[in-house]
Every structure is written in C-alpha cells, then in structure tokens.
Design a protein around this nucleic acid. Structure first.
Length: 495
RNA sequence: GGCGUUGUGGCCGAGUGGCUAGGCAGAGGUCUGCAAAACCUUUUACAGCGGUUCGAAUCCGCUCAGCGCCUCCA
C-alpha cells in the first residue's frame, strides 16, 4: 500500500503516521478486565476493537506482541470505603475464595472472547503473578524520591514529580486545578496531596488479599500493575498502549508518571482510547446499573431488548462505528445490523465458492477501475486509524460487484482474472481475518430435520419411493436416520 | 465548577473546505410460476445564528442541547 497507517494518538490529540520503535516488531499493551464480575458489553467493545487492531497490524506484516492483563488483585472499591476490595467483597457475598471468583470470571471472559471470535493475546499476565515486580518498581520510585511512606502505605508524590515532569499531559489536566478540586475524603488523610495516588496499601485486618512487602502486609496500587507488566514484557518504552477512554485519567496518567519516575522514560509512543458504549445516551457501566451482559443480548433476556441478537450481529453492530466514537445501543440499530451482517456473510459464502471462469465477456475498464478503487479504499480506510465503519462501507460496495458477478449481470471476462483475484482475496481477508466476522449456523437444526422428515412423510404417502429413498439417504449422510414405525415416522441420531 | 467532546437525512453511522460513504427502512424498476434474494434508479441531511472563503455540513465565533472525565469503571 502506498498509504501508511495513521493512528490517533491521545497524547498529542491528533493522528500521526505509525512508526514502530523496532520494525517489524510492535509492542501493544491493553488494559484488560477486572475479574470480580461478568464483563459487560461495553468492556467487550474495547477488547473487540483492539482485537481488530491486533489483526490488522498482523495483516500489515508486523510481528505484534499483544499483552492484555487480567486484574485479579482486588483494588479498593473507592476511596470512601477503605479496607474492603472488590474481589474479597464479592468473595464474602458469594462465600467463595477470592481466587475462586477470579477463576470463574476469567473463564467467563475467555469464553466470551471466543464467542466473539477474538484471538487470544500473546501474553495475558495476571497482576497477582507480578507482586514481586511491583514491589521492585515501588523501591525504584522510593529511591528516585518520587514516593513516600506513611504507616506502611506508599504513595506517589505527584507534585514533586510535576516539578520536572508534566503530570496531566495525557488527559490535558493542570495539576493546580486538580489540587483545588480534589475531594475531601477520609483515606486521603495519609496523602500529602489529594492528587497523590497509592503504590502500596497496608491491608486492614479484614482485607483478605494481601502480600508481604518491606513496608507492610498489603496490596499494590491499581495503576502499578500495568506499568510493571507493560515494562516486563514490552520494555521501558513500547509502541501502543490502549484501553477505554475512562481509563485515560487517572489510570493511564498515573502509569506515565510511574514509568517516568522509575525509569526516566516515557513508557508509550501511541496512546489509544476507545470510546464508551451508551444506553439511551448514557455511558454503560456497572455502577450505573445500565449495563448489558453479553448473554442477555444473545438470549434477548433483558427488559430493554425486543429480542435476541447473536454474537456476530453484535460484533458487526459495534464495528459499524469507529472505536473512538460513542455508540448508542438500540433495538432498531441492532436489527439493522443483523440484516447488514447477514448480507455481508452471504457475500462471504458466495465469493469463497466463486472461481474465475473465462466467459468471453468484453473487458470493461470502468468496472475494473471501480473494483480496484474499492479494494484500495478498503486498505486506506483501515490505515486511517482503523476505521472499520468506512471499511465496512467499502466492503458493501465490493459486495455489489460480487453479487453482480454471481447473477451474471457482470461477466468474469469484463473484470479479468487479476482484478477478480484481488477482489476475492480482499473481501475474504477483510471480512474473515481482519474484522473477523464468521458464519453463524442457525442454531435450531432440528427444525430443518423436522421439515425434511415432513417432506419424507408426504412422499411416502404419495408412494413416490424415488423421492423417499433420496431423502432417507440425504439424512443418513448427515447422521440422521428415519424410522418408519407402525406408530408413525420419526427421526433419530444414527447409532 | 474545571477540562473535554458530540449534535449528519425515518433509524444507525462514516466522512470531508468544491468530487455518490455504507447499512436498515421507504418508493419505482429489472428478474421471477409464486416468494425471496440479487441488481438498477430514487426521496427527506449535515442543531441554530453570525463570520472567513470564489465556494463550508466541513474552518472561526457565539447560542442551544446532549454526553464524558474530574471517584471504581473498557
């Protein structure tokens, strides 16, 4: 491709040409889920977006190491109710071991990624597996004078850091303003400034998840795990760091401060943030109670849903917007997406079966040029900050040509073998490998069998034995046997 | 309150200083035993008011409305 990949970098607030630090290698870190409850659809949107980004980077030939963590340290619910963390709270409610909670929801999350046809990341590190490294980073920050200890807890000294560095450069904040607007909460008494954040918290007696450290039995601060694991697996400076827009501040801002404070280097070249999924214009979130669980969507079992929507319909719906735009959920939009998805998949089935056949049609330069242009637009759309929405539009344009070819309205000879091959590989690559949409079988195949058996009954009644034999053979070939019994005609699985 | 961000046709949703986004829905047509699919054509746009410009929905200003972050959050 002539055109180069451009990425919107949150750090600069503009798109820039993507240049990896050490091509062809690319390091990408994405903040993964906190596994104390089911991930909801909004969470999945982010992971799905980065799955497509991962796939497209690979498609371009980059060797991507994709790290997506699992946050399994129960961080504090909020600064207000200090002492209890999300995971141990959930464990207490459900009468389970904290790690049982972690295991359950991690497994659930993994199932979902498969259902949505996502690739596993290269490395999926857990925060609890990196306590030693986190303690190490805290030591480094203490040595460098950016952290201080109070009663066994360690805090990051933001104002000291800000003397020589710019705390707030990612989220566009000014430290003075934040210090004024900081909230007056009990847990902040230990901090020198309200904007300081915890690197290590001493555990209260009832806190279940705890580890020994030089300062106290306790647990690491939330922001630390990403800094530590990103550095460990991708280096002190790596290419891409992604996550939901709601992590931009304070989480990502703190990550930058920690890395710069510890290693003196900016950790990330390109910061990418995915926007929120909304319901009736409001952010979907667990705390607002307006979140959809994926299975609620798949079953239609939710007060706001008219009916069920399949995983691929959902995925298509999400990919029809750009990752950096908010996307609002509605039944109408989902229904429209379902039709669009099916149209696109029908096209995939067609083109996969289609082979070039010289039919003597006259070469049609206009059509060739159109197809070439659409193909190149597919690439340039993705190159333009992974614009899946535009890309899908182009694929539909390509689909028109495919369908015309299929119905004979456009001759193979008109476009020639070369253009045909390009069209075919582009459509398949983009739908199947980049957007990663796949065919969904109609779930109730039993209805199909029942319909066949009904035709069998009628043929038998007519004594059309040729038809009867054909139907029986067809079913048997698919592992279904027809049973002609005195009491009636039934079917069963072949034993 | 501070900082952002968004406002596109019946719905969803891209995009852009002048060149058809696309999907869904609607209308007409081709094809067809019927139906569907497919293909072709097609209607209703860029929140409001000003400004810059040969030309703006696209840039600037103001107004209105929504949303997000500032607290755990993808």
């Amino acid at each position: 491709m002539v055109e180069k990949l451009r990425i919107y970098n949150s750090l600069l607030g503009k798109k820039e040409t993507f240049e990896p630090i050490e091509p062809p290698y690319v390091g990408m870190y994405v903040c993964g889920p906190t596994v104390y409850s089911d991930v909801h659809l909004g969470n999945m949107r982010t992971f799905m977006s980065f799955d497509v980004i991962y796939r497209y980077l690979s498609y371009l030939g980059y060797k991507v190491r994709y790290v997506r963590n699992i946050t399994d340290v129960g961080h504090l619910e909020s600064d207000a109710d200090e002492g209890e963390d999300k995971i141990s709270k959930k464990a207490r409610l459900e009468n389970l071991e904290p790690m049982e909670i972690v295991q359950r929801y991690t497994t659930g999350f993994h199932r979902l990624t498969e259902i949505f046809n996502m690739l596993p990341p290269s490395i999926e590190p857990a925060a609890t597996g990196h306590i030693v490294e986190q303690i190490g980073m805290i030591r480094q920050l203490l040595d460098n004078g950016f952290a201080y200890e109070v009663n066994g807890s360690i805090y990051f000294d933001v104002s000291k850091y800000n003397k020589d560095h710019n705390y707030g450069k990612l989220s566009g904040r000014k430290i003075e303003e934040m210090m004024e607007s900081g909230r007056d909460l009990a847990s902040q008494e230990e901090k020198r400034n309200t904007i300081d954040f915890a690197l290590w918290k001493k555990a209260t007696p009832e806190h279940i998840m705890r580890w020994p450290s030089p300062w106290s039995d306790g647990f690491p601060g939330w922001h630390l795990e990403c800094s530590v694991m990103g550095t460990k697996y991708l280096g002190e400076t790596f290419d891409i760091h992604g996550g939901g827009l709601d992590l931009q501040f304070p989480h990502h801002e703190c990550e930058i401060a920690q890395s710069v404070g510890a290693y003196g280097k900016d950790p990330v070249r390109y910061w990418m943030h995915t926007n929120m999924l909304t319901v009736n214009g409001q952010k979907m979130s667990k705390s607002l109670g307006n979140s959809f669980l994926p299975h609620e969507l798949f079953t239609g079992n939710h007060p706001l849903l008219d009916e069920a929507y399949s995983p691929m319909t959902t995925k298509f719906f999400m990919l029809q917007s750009h990752y950096s735009s908010t996307l609002d959920f509605s039944n109408e939009a989902l229904k429209a997406a379902r039709k669009g998805y099916k149209r696109m998949i029908n096209g995939l089935r067609l083109i996969k079966e289609m082979e070039f056949a010289e039919d003597g049609a006259e070469r049609d330069e206009k059509n060739i040029k159109q197809i070439e242009q659409i193909v190149s637009m597919c690439h340039s759309s993705m190159n333009d900050d992974f614009n899946t929405a535009l890309t899908i539009g182009q694929l539909f344009n390509l689909l028109k040509k495919i369908n015309s070819l299929h119905t004979g309205q456009l001759g193979f000879g008109a476009i020639g073998r070369e253009t045909f091959d390009k069209m075919k590989s582009t459509y398949i690559d983009f739908v199947e490998n980049i957007l990663a949409l796949k065919e969904e079988d109609p779930s109730d195949f039993k209805h199909l069998v029942e319909a066949m058996v009904e035709i069998y009954r009628e043929a038998k009644f007519r004594k059309d034995f040729e038809q009867v034999d054909k139907l029986r053979a067809g079913l048997k070939a698919n592992g279904i046997i027809v049973k002609d019994m005195k009491t009636g005609i039934e079917w069963a699985y072949e034993e």
